[in-house]
Design a protein around this nucleic acid. Structure first.
Length: 272
DNA sequence: AAACGTCTCAACCGCTGTCAC
DNA sequence: TGTGACAGCGGTTGAGACGTT
């Protein structure tokens, strides 16, 4: 058997896909459907493994795939779902329509882990997770609110069309998701509350929400964040320059969620 | 302009789970 | 029950883009 596999592998192509290969794969799937990837690769005349064809289709060629520009709402959802499930990328991707596990994984590695590195703390540490949950995520919610409010204001001043609510659907529903999970997870104080009951509950498309609910989302379920119980002294902030660089951030949306108040708060924690 | 470092993301790899036989 | 084929997952890599000196 190995001999057979090796023989087959001898002329297998690897590396980047060409336009012609993409075209062949798309056409073949349009005619015969996806699945049975090894035989699909053979029948289509592609000198690729079934795995490679599957990956190319799912991550790039599929018509409903969305790439680039991960929105604030999506960032919030990724942070939240990762806090719940860890590196279960495909499971997380199921709740971001059009996004692939690969893209979410890349986002996490390039954006989120970068911050942990800059702070010189473990990305899996409780401190970093709390920083995400009680500083980064509320900041995202604020920004989502701000952008949806300004969008609403703009549309009110330009038109009285009652369908404008649709513009805010993604941001409202995703913050509802954040609210639900924040209230249902375990924090670093060890408070255990009930998990979300059903997978379908998690899909942010399913959540209607009132704008007035936002305020409550910004308060941690136990309130411990407000009174310094979050012990940032255990985080290695000796390199204050690194922290400042992180807070002041780069052009990336997720890097600009910090303002001077956050910095002061963190420094207070250090001094206590 | 060139050399170098860093970042991004598409693609690959190894492993595990599932299913048909 | 064992085995092989395949699908799917998470971790890792490397080419190219981009920024800096």
């Amino acid at each position: 058997m190995d001999h057979h596999v090796n023989e087959d592998n001898m002329d297998l192509k690897r590396g980047s896909w060409t336009v012609e290969e993409d075209f062949t794969l798309i056409n073949h799937i349009a005619l015969h459907g996806e699945g049975r990837w090894n035989s699909l690769a053979r029948c289509a005349g592609l000198k690729r493994t079934g795995k490679s064809c599957r990956l190319r289709w799912l991550n790039y060629l599929r018509p409903d795939v969305r790439r680039g520009n991960i929105t604030l709402e999506e960032q919030l959802l990724i942070l939240e779902l990762h806090s719940r499930w860890g590196n279960r990328w495909s499971k997380i991707a199921q709740h971001l329509p059009g996004r692939t596990d690969n893209e979410i994984k890349n986002y996490w590695r390039t954006r989120v882990q970068k911050h942990a590195k800059q702070l010189k703390c473990d990305v899996n540490s409780k401190q970093f997770k709390d920083t995400i949950r009680y500083l980064w995520m509320p900041r995202l919610v604020e920004r989502i609110q701000a952008s949806s409010n300004s969008a609403a204001t703009t549309s009110i001043t330009t038109t009285n069309n009652s369908n404008n609510n649709n513009n805010n659907h993604a941001s409202t529903s995703v913050t509802q998701e954040y609210s639900t999970v924040t209230a249902s997870s375990e924090n670093s104080m060890g408070t255990q509350v009930s998990p979300v009951s059903d997978m379908s509950d998690c899909c942010y498309n399913n959540y209607p929400i009132n704008q007035s609910d936002y305020g409550e989302l910004l308060i941690s379920p136990t309130g411990y964040f407000q009174h310094g119980a979050l012990d940032f002294r255990t985080v290695d902030y000796n390199n204050q320059q690194n922290m400042s660089q992180w807070m002041e951030g780069t052009e990336d949306v997720s890097d600009n969620l910090w303002n001077i108040e956050d910095m002061l708060f963190l420094q207070q924690q250090l001094n206590n």
